[in-house]
């Protein structure tokens, strides 16, 4: 299945946000659910092998957009001869704009082979919260292969470049260097927001990046402790202290 969906948010005359483009193709269905909120609503299970999904997000100067999803994304196996499923997300955030990407987790079902490629470009003066949660296999199930390949640029410089691979194709992925037997991981990248480093309890750390921003990472046996660690950082009321 191929899909290309696109959302463009712009600041309107009243200081609010107007969606000048909201184009959806199944299974990437976008629905406006609030003044600045768009939900991805599930259009069938997937992605499956062979799927090629693209989502473009543009947030114009001064606009605010939050993207959520109504349900977890379940990466499933498809026919063996097909290439890995692919979900390519491209986002641009202009000066004075805010983008919050905060979907439900992706679940890597046994036998899946999926690749998410994220490229986010934040202009100087823009604000980003980018959350990715991943669960390695459904309940009592082995993990499939998932790669989350993420590039986040701020003010023209690469701030965060990370490629996480889990599943049987990734050597040592559940070992003590990568997930340590944990089945769920969540990350949030903030730009240019930053706070002093903190770590623990458990496998959790909040890390100031070398550039203007920070990463919060949590790993646990299941998604609940990950959400408990990361959700408070995603509260819309949390002051985003610009530095």
């Amino acid at each position: 299945m191929k899909a290309f969906s696109r959302v463009v948010a712009e600041r309107d005359n009243l200081g609010g946000t107007r969606l000048t483009v909201l184009h959806s193709e199944s299974p990437l269905l976008l629905r406006r659910t609030g003044p600045t909120t768009v939900h991805l609503v599930g259009g069938g299970a997937g992605p499956l092998r062979g799927d090629d999904l693209r989502l473009d997000i543009a947030v114009g100067p001064g606009a605010t957009l939050e993207i959520r999803s109504v349900a977890a994304q379940l990466a499933l196996p498809g026919r063996d001869h097909l290439p890995p499923s692919r979900f390519e997300i491209t986002a641009t955030v202009a000066a004075g704009a805010t983008l919050r990407w905060h979907p439900e987790p992706m679940i890597a079902a046994a036998g899946c082979d999926h690749h998410t490629i994220t490229r986010v470009d934040v202009a100087e003066g823009g604000t980003l919260l980018w959350r990715d949660d991943l669960v390695c296999g459904r309940h009592h199930e082995d993990s499939g292969n998932v790669r989350l390949d993420t590039t986040i640029r701020y003010a023209g410089t690469t701030l965060y470049r990370h490629d996480l691979a889990v599943g049987p194709a990734a050597p040592g992925w559940s070992g003590p260097a990568i997930l340590g037997g944990g089945r769920a991981i969540g990350t949030i990248v903030f730009a240019p927001d930053t706070m002093p480093a903190t770590s623990g309890p458990g496998d959790y750390a909040l890390m100031p990046l070398a550039g203007p921003g920070m990463l919060a990472t949590a790993i646990a046996d299941d998604i609940r402790p990950v959400q408990a660690a990361l959700d408070p950082l995603c509260e819309p009321t949390r002051a985003l202290a610009h530095t």
Binding site: R161, L179, G180, I185, D203, A205, M207, T217
Partner: peptide, 22 residues
Amino acid sequence: PVDDLPAAGAPLLDIGAELHAT
């Protein structure tokens, strides 16, 4: 190009290093 070079990450090495530093 630098952005295209490998970026394979190991989250527990990151978290472990932060805990270790404290």
